[in-house]
Simulated scan of single mutants.
Amino acid sequence: MNELLLGMRLRGMQYRRIHASDSFGFAFKAKPGCAYFHFLAAGTAHLLSEDGAIQTLSAGNAVFLPHGSGHKIFSDPKAVVLDIDHCDVMPLSETVSAVKTGLNNTSHTIFFSGCMEFDLGGLQGLVPLMPELMMIDATSQRYVELMPILTAMEKEACAGRVGDAGILARLADVVMAVIVRGWVECGCGNSSAFVTALREPRLSRAILALHRQPGHDWTVAELAAESGLSRSVFAKRFQETIGVAPLRYAGELRMRIARTWLAYDRMSIERVAERLGYASQAAFSRAYKRITGTSPGHSRREQTT
Results as ranks from 00 to 15, higher is better:
Ser107Val: 15
Ser58Ile: 11
Val127Ser: 12
Ser97Tyr: 05
Gly68Val: 07
Ser140Asn: 05
Leu120Glu: 03
Arg16Pro: 05
Ser21Pro: 00
Ala30Ile: 00
Lys72Tyr: 05
Leu57Ile: 05
Val80Tyr: 09
Ser97Thr: 07
Phe112Cys: 03
Gly33Met: 01
His86Thr: 12
Tyr36His: 15
Ala62Cys: 07
Ala59Arg: 00
Thr56Trp: 06
Val80Gly: 04
Pro91Ile: 03
Leu57Gly: 04
Asp76Met: 04
Ile73Lys: 08
Ala138Ile: 06
Gln55Met: 10
Gly33Thr: 00
Ile110Phe: 08
Lys72Leu: 07
Ser97Asn: 07
Val127Ala: 12
Met135Thr: 06
Leu57Lys: 01
Phe28Asn: 01
Ala20Gln: 04
Asp76Leu: 13
Arg16Thr: 05
His71Trp: 00
Asp83Met: 10
Thr106Arg: 13
Asn61Cys: 14
Met90Phe: 11
Gly43Asp: 06
Asn104Tyr: 06
Glu132Cys: 01
Arg17Asp: 14
Arg17Phe: 12
His86Glu: 15
Glu117Trp: 07
Val81Gln: 07
Phe39Gly: 04
Ile136Val: 15
Val80Asn: 11
Glu50Thr: 14
Ala79Pro: 01
Lys72Ser: 09
Met134His: 05
Phe24Met: 01
Thr44Trp: 02
Ala27Ile: 04
His71Val: 01
Glu117Ala: 14
Met134Ala: 03
Ser21Asp: 11
Thr44Glu: 15
Ala59Val: 08
Gln14Pro: 03
Cys34Ser: 13
Arg142Asn: 08
Ser93Lys: 07
Ala79Glu: 04
Cys115Glu: 13
Met116Cys: 14
Gln14Thr: 14
Val80Lys: 14
Leu47Gly: 06
Met90His: 12
Gly25Tyr: 02
Leu48Pro: 04
Ser49Pro: 00
His19Met: 07
Ala20Asn: 00
Asp137Tyr: 03
Met130Ser: 02
Ser107Phe: 08
Gly52Tyr: 03
His38Pro: 02
Glu117Val: 12
Leu133Glu: 11
Gly43Phe: 02
His67Phe: 06
Phe118Lys: 04
Ala41Gln: 13
Asn61Met: 15
Leu57Arg: 01
Gly25Asp: 02
Gln124Asp: 13
Met130Glu: 02
Phe118Asp: 06
His67Trp: 11
Thr56Phe: 07
Ala42His: 12
Gln141Phe: 14
Ser23Ala: 13
Ala20Phe: 01
Ile84Arg: 11
Ser93Phe: 04
Asn104Ala: 10
Ser21Phe: 01
Leu48Asn: 08
